[in-house]
Structure formats: C-alpha cells, structure tokens
C-alpha cells in the first residue's frame, strides 16, 4: 500500500507523446521545466526517429526516478513500442495513463490497465 508521503509531493503530469499530443497538453498548461542547472522537462516528443531506448529511459525517469510526477500520460501507439515495460508496470504512483493520439484512435483492447479490468471483471 502506498504511504502518504509517497504522493504528497506529486503534483505534475508528465507526457510521452507525439508532437501534436504534447503540444496540446502543453497548451493546457501541464508543461514544467525545472530550474536551470539540471533543466528537466516533464514531456518527451516522440517521432519515428526517436530510439525506443530513449522512450524507455524517459519512462524510467518519470516512473521511478522523479518523485514529483503524479500522472504519466503516454500515447497508446508509443506505449505499444515499450509494451513489455508498460505491462510490467504495476505501481500506483505515478499513475500511468494511455491516451489516444490524433493519428491513432483509442483501442481499448491494448490498454494494459483495461486488460486487467477486463480480466478481473470476469471476461
């Protein structure tokens, strides 16, 4: 069970997504860049050229290293590229959310959480 201290300081959202999704979410005001010496962004733009290892690295950074992230949003088609990592992720914090992107409509079948929901709902 999560200890209260584990999520008291978590107040940001992090995004791993394609350019349009990230832009939109940034417009909503989720973007945060930490102060200069080690300027860390809380978003990562992924395109065809982005290495899968870079996505994994960002995933690790947001899920385990940074303690101020409450929710991690990840485009479903990007989650697909690191599916094994996403499926293996069971922590409550930060909460991992797969979101649809512009070019890839939402497919409930692939969502790791929804899969668990389905399984537990007895289907």
């Amino acid at each position: 069970m999560a200890q209260p201290t584990a999520y008291k300081d978590r107040q940001f959202l992090a995004v791993i997504g394609d350019e349009d999704s990230v832009t939109g979410l940034l417009l909503a005001g989720v973007g945060h860049v930490t102060s200069p010496p080690d300027a860390q962004k809380n978003f990562l733009v992924v395109d065809q050229k982005t290495e899968t290892s870079a996505i994994e690295q960002a995933f690790d950074l947001y899920t385990s290293q940074r303690k101020d992230i409450a929710i991690l949003l990840i485009n479903q088609h990007i989650a697909e590229r690191i599916r094994h990592r996403v499926d293996a992720y069971t922590q409550a914090f930060p909460s991992l959310l797969e979101i649809p992107s512009k070019d890839h409509p939402y497919d409930p079948e692939k969502d790791s959480v929804l899969k668990r929901v389905r399984r537990l709902a007895g289907e």
Binding site: P4, Q11, V33
Partner: peptide
C-alpha cells in the same frame, strides 16, 4: 513552427494536481 514554439516556451506548470484521500 507553432508547435515547436509552444514546446519551447513551456516553463512552469500551470495545470497541476493535488492528492486527496
């Protein structure tokens, strides 16, 4: 170019979450 500019001008999160129990 707009999308890029938006990415670059993001500084501080305006939209945050707090946790209740």
């Amino acid at each position: 170019a707009l999308t890029y500019q938006i990415q670059e001008s993001a500084k501080s999160a305006k939209f945050r979450v707090r946790t209740k129990q």
